[in-house]
Design a binder for these strands. Structure first.
Length: 614
RNA sequence: GGCUCCGUAGCUCAACUGGAUAGAGUACCUGACUACGAAUCAGGAGGUUGCAGGUUCGAACCCUGCCGGAGUCACCA
C-alpha cells in the first residue's frame, strides 16, 4: 500500500547499484511536487550529490530511469534544478481510487492495545464556560476522535475543580445576598446564577478593601510596610492577598467556611452539593449544544485525599522532604526546576496534590498508560513539574504523559479577563454563530421549505461548523485572536465551505436515479483536477497518523479544506451527471462518492457534522 | 530580573519539520448563474518572513546578539 516507501527504497537501491552509495531509504526525502511543475512526487537530489560525485542532472537521469524500469507505477520524470519530479501513471491512480472507494472506514489505522486518556475542559464550579473553555473542549474532543481513528482505545474525561476557596466565595455570597434564589425560581441557567454571586463576592470584597484603606488601620499599615518606591495605589494593589488573608472580615468568613467544608459540616456540604449541581446542569447544556460529551468525570473533591496519601508515602521513602514548619516539598533542582510545595503546613492540599491523586486513580480504574492533558499554556510549568514528580515516584504511566498545551484566545481588545467583564460566554457565542447561519440560509432560501425542526438542526449544524473549524484550524500551540463582533465567517476557508462540498455531492446523488455502477473505469483518462483529488484521498491515512503523532487537529482541518477546495474546483470544471461519456460519468460518480465519505469522516474528526442540505 | 513561548500580505492563518518563485482565506478591484446548489469558480493587486550577523549547495525554520509581545517564577486553581 505504501508506495512512497517503495519509491524511497528504489532510490536507495539505485544509489547503491549505480554509485555505490549506501543510504538509508528513510532518509530519501520525497515531497509532493509543487503545482507549477509537472509531476506527482519529487525526490530531492542535493543530499546525494557529493557522495555520488555526480551532477544533479546526471544523478536525476539515472535515478529516474531506474524508477521507470523497476517500479510499475512511474510513467515519466523530469529534472529541474536538483529536483527529480516523477509522474505516476494514470492506471496507478485509478487503482488507488478503486481500492479506496471500497475500503470500509478508509483512513483508520490498525487497532492497537494502547489505552489513552484525554482530559479536557476542566471547569471551575463557580462560573459559566467561556470562549477559552471552548478551545480546550474542541481540541480535546477532536484529539480523542483522531486518536481513536489512529487505533487507540480512548477515554474522554474531565476533572472538575469542585472544591477550594473560590467555590466557598460564591457559596458565602449566595447566602448573604442570594435571597434564596434558585435557577428554577429565577429562570436563570445555573452556572450563570452561581457566577453572578461569585462576581458579587469580589465586588463586595473590593468595597470592603477600599473602606479599610481609608481607615486608621489601613493608613498605619501603609506607613509601616511601604517601600521606598511605593505609591499608595501600588502598595495596596500588592497588599491585596495579604489583606484578604489577614484583615478581611469576608475573607475570614470564607476561610471558616472552607474549614467547615473540610470537616464535613452537614449544612455547608448540602449547600455545596446544591450549588455545584446548578453549575453542572448549566455546563451540561453547553456541552450538549457543542455536541460533545465525556466518558467519565473526576472530581477534585474525590481525588485530593488520594493525592495527600501519595505525598505522605513519598515523604516516607524520602522522595519528598519536610520543611521546619511541617510543609512537604519536592526538590526538582536536579532536573533544572525549582522546589515545589506539595502539602501546606496545616496539612491541606494544593493544586499539584490533586493532580497526583487523580492520575493514580485513573490509572487504577482504566489502566491508561498514556494520558493527555488539554490545558492552556499558562500551565506549562505546572505540568513540567507534575510529570517530573511522577517520574520520581516511578509511576508506570509516567512516560506516557503529555500536556497538549494550547495558546490563550485573545480578543481584538486584548486579553479576556473575567474580573473586567471582558469574557465571551460560550452560550452567547454559540447562539450568535447559529443565528448568523440562520440568516445566511434564509437569504439563500434553499432550506426554507423544510419543516422547521429540520431547519433548526441544519442551522445549528452550520453555525457550529463555522465556530469549530475557526478554532481548530489554528495550530493549538499558537495564541489566537478571536473577534466576536465579526463573529465567524461562513465563506472561504471555513467549516460551511467544506460542508457545502458535501452537500453538493449529496445533491448529485439525489438527482442521479440509477444505482451507482460498479467501479469499472480502468480505461478512463483522467484530467488534472481529478487526479489531484485522488492524490489527496491517498494522503488521508498519512495525515491522520501525523495529527495523532503531533497532537494537532489543525492538520486535519487543513486537509479537509484542501479536499473540499479541490472538489469545488472539479465540480466547476467538469460535468458529472451529464458527462461526455458513460465512462467519465461512472468514474466521477465514484470519485464524488468517495470524496463525500472522506469529507464526512475528516469533519467528524473535528467534531463537525455534515448536513445533506444547507 | 531568571526561565519558556511567540513575531510571516491590511486582517485571520499555512508552509510536509532545512528544499524549488513563502501559500490560502478575508477585505479591495475584475470576470463567470436559462449548465449537476454561486456558502462556488477564475483573474488582479497585496511580502526585505521584527532587525543584524553566522552556519551550508540551500534558512521563515538551526546558532548568536538586539527590538517588540505573551506566559511563568503563589502555602491560587
Amino acid at each position: 500500500m505504501n508506495f512512497i516507501a517503495t519509491i524511497q527504497e528504489e532510490v536507495a537501491n539505485a544509489l547503491l547499484i549505480h554509485f555505490e552509495c549506501d543510504v538509508d531509504s528513510d532518509s530519501v526525502l520525497i515531497n509532493t511536487t509543487k503545482q507549477e511543475f509537472e509531476g506527482d512526487y519529487t525526490v530531492v537530489l542535493f543530499p546525494f550529490l557529493k557522495r555520488a560525485k555526480a551532477s544533479p542532472d546526471k544523478l536525476g537521469q539515472i535515478l529516474g530511469t531506474h524508477l521507470e524500469e523497476n517500479t510499475n507505477m512511474v510513467s515519466c520524470f523530469n529534472i529541474v534544478k536538483g529536483f527529480l519530479n516523477v509522474s505516476l501513471s494514470n492506471s496507478f491512480w485509478l487503482d488507488k481510487l478503486a481500492v479506496i472507494s471500497t475500503v470500509e472506514n478508509y483512513g483508520s489505522l490498525p487497532q492497537r492495545s494502547d489505552k489513552v486518556l484525554v482530559e479536557y475542559s476542566s471547569p471551575n464550579t463557580n462560573k459559566p464556560l467561556h470562549l477559552g473553555h471552548i478551545r480546550t473542549i474542541l481540541l480535546g474532543w477532536s484529539m480523542a476522535q483522531i486518536l481513536e481513528k489512529a487505533g487507540y482505545q480512548v477515554t474522554k474525561t474531565l476533572i472538575v475543580n469542585d472544591r477550594g476557596i473560590a467555590i466557598c466565595k460564591s457559596m458565602l455570597s449566595w447566602l448573604k445576598f442570594g435571597d434564596n434564589k434558585t435557577p428554577a425560581s429565577t429562570g436563570t441557567k445555573g452556572d450563570f446564577l452561581v457566577g453572578e454571586y461569585y462576581v458579587k463576592f469580589d465586588q463586595e470584597l473590593a468595597k470592603e478593601y477600599t473602606a479599610w484603606q481609608n481607615s486608621d488601620e489601613g493608613a498605619s499599615t501603609y506607613e509601616k510596610l511601604k517601600k521606598a518606591d511605593d505609591t499608595i495605589e501600588s502598595f495596596f494593589k500588592g497588599f491585596k492577598n495579604k489583606y484578604f488573608n489577614e484583615h478581611s472580615a469576608l475573607g475570614s468568613e470564607v476561610k471558616a467556611m472552607l474549614i467547615k467544608w473540610e470537616q464535613g459540616d452537614e449544612e455547608v456540604k448540602t449547600l455545596w452539593k446544591t450549588m455545584n449541581q446548578w453549575v453542572y446542569d448549566g455546563h451540561d447544556v453547553t456541552y450538549e449544544k457543542l455536541g460533545i460529551h465525556f466518558d467519565k468525570a473526576y472530581y477534585e473533591s474525590e481525588t485530593y485525599l488520594t493525592g495527600k496519601e501519595i505525598v505522605l508515602e513519598g515523604l516516607k521513602d524520602e522522595t519528598f522532604y519536610k520543611a521546619d514548619d511541617g510543609s512537604i516539598w519536592v526538590d526538582l533542582e536536579d532536573v533544572g526546576l525549582d522546589k515545589k510545595i506539595l502539602l501546606r503546613s496545616d496539612g491541606t492540599s494544593v493544586y499539584l496534590t490533586q493532580d497526583l491523586g487523580t492520575a493514580d486513580i485513573r490509572y487504577e480504574e482504566l489502566g491508561t498508560e498514556k494520558m493527555i492533558y488539554v490545558v492552556g499554556d499558562e500551565q506549562d510549568y505546572h505540568f513540567k513539574v507534575l510529570f517530573e514528580i511522577m517520574k520520581k515516584l516511578k509511576r508506570p504511566y509516567s512516560k506516557g504523559l503529555y500536556h497538549l498545551s494550547y495558546g490563550m484566545i485573545d480578543l481584538p481588545t486584548g486579553k479576556m479577563k473575567s474580573r473586567e467583564g471582558t469574557v465571551v460566554d460560550a452560550d452567547d457565542l454559540i447562539e450568535e454563530v447559529i443565528q448568523e447561519a440562520r440568516e445566511g440560509a434564509k437569504e439563500r432560501g434553499d432550506v426554507t421549505q423544510l419543516p422547521s425542526e429540520e431547519q433548526t438542526a441544519i442551522f445549528n449544524n452550520i453555525g457550529l461548523a463555522a465556530l469549530k473549524f475557526f478554532i481548530l484550524k489554528v495550530n493549538p500551540k499558537k495564541r489566537m485572536i478571536f473577534n466576536p463582533a465579526d463573529s465567524v465567517d461562513m465563506q472561504g476557508q471555513t467549516g460551511p465551505y467544506i460542508q457545502n462540498a458535501f452537500v453538493r455531492i449529496q445533491s448529485i446523488f439525489r438527482k442521479s436515479e440509477e444505482a451507482l455502477p460498479a467501479a469499472a473505469f480502468e480505461d478512463y483518462q483522467m484530467v488534472e483536477v481529478e487526479k489531484d483529488l485522488i492524490k489527496t484521498l491517498v494522503n488521508y491515512p498519512v495525515v491522520i497518523e501525523q495529527a495523532a503523532l503531533q497532537y494537532d487537529p489543525s492538520i486535519i482541518a487543513s486537509y479537509s479544506y484542501t479536499l473540499a477546495k479541490q472538489y469545488h474546483k472539479m465540480y466547476h470544471d467538469v460535468r458529472i451527471l451529464t458527462a461526455e461519456t458513460e465512462l467519465a460519468k461512472t468514474f466521477r460518480l465514484h470519485l464524488s462518492k468517495t470524496v463525500g465519505s472522506i469529507l464526512k469522516s475528516s469533519l467528524n474528526l473535528l467534531g463537525i457534522n455534515v448536513p445533506d442540505r444547507m
